[in-house]
Computed example of a mutant assay.
Amino acid sequence: MKRTTFSLLVVDDDEDDRMIIDDAFLEIGYAGQVKKFMNGKMLFDYLEQIDPSFYPSLIVLDNTLPKMGAEDILTLLKESPAYQSIPVVVYTTSLSPSRQEKLLQKGVYACYQKGEVMEKVIELAKQLRELAESNSPKE
Rank of each mutant, 00 (worst) to 15 (best):
I50T: 03
I50K: 09
I50E: 01
D51F: 01
D51C: 08
P52N: 04
S53V: 11
S53G: 03
S53R: 11
S53Q: 13
F54P: 04
F54R: 12
F54H: 15
F54W: 14
Y55G: 07
Y55F: 15
P56F: 10
P56M: 03
P56W: 02
P56T: 07
P56V: 11
P56Q: 08
S57Q: 08
L58V: 06
L58E: 10
I59A: 05
I59R: 05
I59K: 08
V60S: 05
V60Q: 03
V60N: 03
L61K: 04
L61M: 05
L61Q: 08
D62H: 03
D62Y: 00
D62M: 00
N63M: 01
N63F: 05
T64Y: 09
T64L: 02
T64W: 01
L65V: 03
L65S: 04
L65F: 05
L65M: 13
L65Y: 02
P66N: 05
P66V: 03
P66H: 04
P66A: 00
P66W: 00
K67Y: 05
M68L: 09
M68R: 12
M68E: 00
M68I: 11
M68Y: 00
G69T: 06
G69K: 07
G69Q: 04
G69Y: 00
A70I: 06
E71C: 06
E71W: 01
D72S: 15
D72L: 11
D72I: 09
D72V: 11
I73K: 03
I73V: 10
I73G: 07
I73P: 02
L74F: 04
L74Q: 05
T75V: 14
T75E: 07
T75D: 13
L76F: 14
L76D: 12
L77R: 13
L77E: 05
K78W: 06
K78Y: 01
K78L: 09
K78A: 06
K78R: 15
E79I: 04
E79P: 10
E79F: 07
S80K: 06
S80L: 06
P81R: 14
A82P: 02
A82D: 01
Y83M: 04
Y83Q: 00
Y83W: 15
Q84E: 15
Q84S: 15
S85Q: 14
S85N: 12
S85W: 03
I86S: 02
I86E: 08
P87T: 09
V88R: 07
V89I: 12
V89A: 02
V89P: 03
V89T: 12
V90T: 12
V90W: 00
V90I: 15
Y91R: 01
Y91W: 13
T92G: 10
T92F: 02
T93D: 02
T93A: 06
T93S: 12
T93M: 10
S94L: 09
S94T: 12
S94I: 07
S94M: 07
S94R: 07
L95V: 15
L95S: 09
L95T: 09
L95E: 12
L95F: 10
S96W: 03
S96R: 11
P97I: 11
P97D: 09
P97G: 11
P97N: 14
